[in-house]
Computed example of a mutant assay.
Amino acid sequence: MAAVTSSLAADTTSGGLFDTVADWAVDLMDAIGGPGAGIAIGIENLFPPIPSEVILPLAGFAAARGSMSLVEAIAWTTLGSLVGALVLYGISRAIGMERLSRIVDRMPIVSVEDLQKGEQWFQRHGTKAVFLGRMVPLVRSAISVPAGVARMPIWVFVLYTTLGSLIWNSIFILAGYFLGENWSVVENYAGVLQYVVIGVLVGLAGWYAVKKVAAR
């Protein structure tokens, strides 16, 4: 495994947040394989400035090179997403939005604005905000906060967080897997991809609702 992920490190250049995160993720996957990818994504949920759009394609590339299987990459990153989301959910449920906002306001790497975006999504879309929010950068992490404050049933939170994370993670990991050494280009199209995914899901939900109404 070490030889494979050392090759990955050689394929990433130095300098800037993108390359720093890539090098760090490579080292983690080199050390512990699939669990390393899960840990990286779990940390990304807690600290949104760490871009999953880098870590996930890189995990796919690592799977293509033999550091882990494709199934392991998807399973571990989905578990990492869930664990990270549950940490934020639990903290928010325990201390509330107001106190959490004061804490975040003192932190240099996350902002109150990110929490507010998550709250707005939750208020606008309700339960499905947790599912769709997993596919929107920054909102992906922040959506756990209003869900915790609102005391959403934990089984509902776990279900929608897992499903949303599974879809999002799989798309980026598969992209990195098939793009190989060109995995880094995925990050350039992440914004477009998120709207495509959300559009498809909203369209499917609308189609399902129309069918239910027609059936009645």
Rank of each mutant, 00 (worst) to 15 (best):
F178A: 02
W24C: 07
Y177D: 14
R124Y: 03
V210A: 12
A3K: 13
T5S: 13
V4T: 14
A129R: 08
I55K: 07
A214F: 04
A37V: 04
N169I: 08
L46P: 04
D105Q: 14
E44N: 11
A94H: 05
Y177C: 13
G206M: 15
W24A: 15
K212M: 08
A142Y: 02
V213E: 10
S52C: 10
T162M: 05
V71N: 05
V210S: 13
W76I: 07
V145W: 12
M1W: 08
L201S: 00
G33K: 08
Y89N: 11
G16D: 04
L166D: 03
L28F: 00
A73E: 12
L86H: 06
S7F: 09
A214I: 08
K212R: 15
T77P: 04
F157L: 08
F131G: 03
T78F: 09
L56P: 01
P137N: 10
F157N: 08
G199Y: 14
D19V: 02
F172C: 10
G80P: 06
P108F: 12
M97W: 02
G84Q: 06
I109T: 10
G60T: 05
V21R: 04
G118E: 11
I154P: 00
E44Q: 14
G203P: 11
T161Q: 09
P146C: 07
G60N: 11
L138V: 15
T20N: 09
L201T: 01
A142R: 06
G42A: 05
L201N: 06
D19T: 05
A3M: 05
V156E: 13
V213F: 14
A205W: 01
A190N: 05
R65G: 00
A10S: 13
L132M: 07
Y160H: 09
R99A: 12
K128M: 13
R151S: 12
S7D: 09
S52T: 11
E181P: 14
G118N: 06
D105C: 00
N169S: 11
Q123G: 13
G133H: 01
V186T: 09
I171R: 04
L138M: 14
L56D: 00
W168I: 03
A209N: 05
G126V: 08
P146F: 00
F157Q: 07
F131T: 02
D19R: 10
Y208S: 04
N169F: 06
V87A: 12
L174S: 07
L8I: 10
L28Y: 01
G133P: 02
A63L: 07
I39V: 15
E181H: 10
L179N: 06
L159S: 14
W183P: 03
L28V: 09
W168G: 00
L132G: 07
L179T: 10
S92C: 06
S101N: 13
R99C: 04
I43C: 11
G38Y: 01
I171Q: 02
K117S: 03
A75T: 15
Q123D: 13
I173N: 04
E119V: 09
L163V: 15
